[in-house]
Structures are given as C-alpha cells and as structure tokens.
C-alpha cells in the first residue's frame, strides 16, 4: 500500500509539474521547428566559432537597431576572443561620456563598457523606426517562449504574405510572429556578412550563428553552471547512497 501511495504521489507531482509547465508555451505561435544547438543539454557548450560568427552578425546587422543593454564588451572573452581582440572591438566604438571638464565628450570604448546602444533612448528608437521599438536582445533567448528555436524561426520565417491577408503599412509577414505582422524588415539576406573563416553566409547559417551568440549573451554563466552542476549533482547522489548505507547500519538492530 505504502509503496503504491509513494509511487502515486511521485507520479502525481511529476505529471503536475510537467502538465503545467509547457502549457505556458502554447499560444498563437506556430509549432517551432526544433534545431540542434551546441549549447543544449546538460553537457552542451557554446560552439565558439559559431558564437564568434554570430557576434559578427550582431555587430554588422542587428546592432544598427537592437541594443545589448545588460552585456559588456568584456563578456566577449566568453566566446573565445582574447583580451586584446575584445579591447580592439571596444576601442572601435565611440562611447559618449562626461569629460574631466564636465562637458559631454566621446571616447573610445573600453572592455568594461556596456555595448553601445544604437539610440539615445526608447523615444528616439521609436521615432527612427516608424513607431516600433526594437527590443533589447541581451535576454531575448530567455524572454521568448521557445527560446533559441523561436528566435531562429523568426529570423528565417519571412515570406510573402498570403494573398487574403491585409498587411498594415510598413509591416512584414512572418509566420512565426504573433499576429504574423512584424515591424522588423527581414534582417538577413544571402551574403549579408562576409565571414572571415570562409563559412558561406546563408540566411540559415547567419541565423544559427547569431542565435548561438545571443544565447551566450542571455546566459553567459551557462558553461560554468553546467560544469559545476555535474559535480554537485554527482556529490549529492553519492551522498544519498552513503547516507542510505549508514541508515541501514543504524537501523539494523531495530525490529521494524
């Protein structure tokens, strides 16, 4: 009886947690095609080459409109760039600051600077973007149901609108966006960037690379977290076994 109840309780808890969690992911979205990501799974790590190519895509394409509010240039060491490379990337940006004389001035960026924002504020962004606000991308993979698969699907999901659909002015058809009308024009096109490593810059390739980069920016602690997690979970599993053995020993003289 007890065994049955224990099993039922565990099963109930499991079903309950599984049944409630994915429910949030449902909505008006189309089913997202699953991609295989280097950073997926308990041992997944970021494909450094893809993440670096993805940074190039962000830098040359996305950053014209989207900021990485929470990220710093120094974070780029996490995708395998050297301190010198990061310093050079930061120095190539002109950062607005206040000079020693108290007057506004521009200076070359430092690794400790946040990524330079394309607009001074949200109102300036809207004014330049036909009223739409390009979302900050520093948490975009965590902030959308479907995560990496969703952002990839969105970037590759542009097509001509169905003939029976009335599109609003300046909007673009995208089959994965809620309501199917998105203000962002198709950001990627064949050969939009030229990869230094010679990888052909197809839309799918660029989308995959930039999503890998953004996944890193959303959760820069991922690799450290998983590596530590393996050790800690193993430790507790081992401790469970040891403690159980001690428990058996302690209880061996009890008639129960």
């Amino acid at each position: 009886m007890m065994r049955w109840v224990t099993f039922a309780a565990a099963a109930a808890a499991l079903i309950g947690s599984l049944a409630t969690a994915p429910a949030r992911a449902e909505g008006d979205h189309m089913a997202l095609p699953k991609q295989s990501w280097s950073f997926a799974g308990p041992f997944g790590t970021f494909d450094r080459a893809a993440a670096q190519r993805g940074f190039q895509v962000y830098n040359e394409v996305c950053s014209a409109c989207h900021q990485l509010h929470h990220a710093y240039y120094r974070d780029l060491t996490g995708i395998g760039l050297s301190a010198e490379q990061v310093a050079a990337i930061a120095a190539s940006k002109s950062i607005s600051d206040i000079g020693d004389d108290g007057a506004p001035m521009d200076r070359p960026g430092l690794p400790s600077d946040h990524f330079k924002a394309p607009y001074a504020n949200d109102l300036a962004a809207r004014a330049a973007q036909n009223g739409a606000l390009p979302p900050d991308l520093s948490l975009i993979i965590k902030a959308r149901d479907g995560g990496a698969d969703y952002v990839y699907a969105l970037l590759t999901g542009y097509s001509a609108a169905p003939s029976n659909m009335k599109m609003s002015d300046g909007m673009n058809y995208n089959k994965y966006f809620v309501g199917n009308q998105v203000a962002m024009t198709p950001p990627l096109s064949e050969g939009r960037v030229t990869y230094a490593d010679g990888t052909p810059a197809s839309v799918n390739q660029m989308a995959k690379d930039v999503v890998t980069f953004l996944a890193f920016i959303s959760e820069p602690e991922t690799e450290q977290r998983k590596a530590l997690g393996v050790r800690i979970v193993l430790f507790f599993v081992l401790m469970t076994g040891l403690t159980y053995a001690v428990k058996r020993k302690v209880w061996s003289d009890v008639d129960h």
Binding site: P42, R225, K226, L228, G229, V230, I232, V233, F236, V237, T240
Partner: peptide
Amino acid sequence: AIFAGFVFF
C-alpha cells in the same frame, strides 16, 4: 540532488 538538478540544468 533533485533541487540541484533544477538549479544547474
């Protein structure tokens, strides 16, 4: 162990 499973993975 289960708690850590959620926290880390």
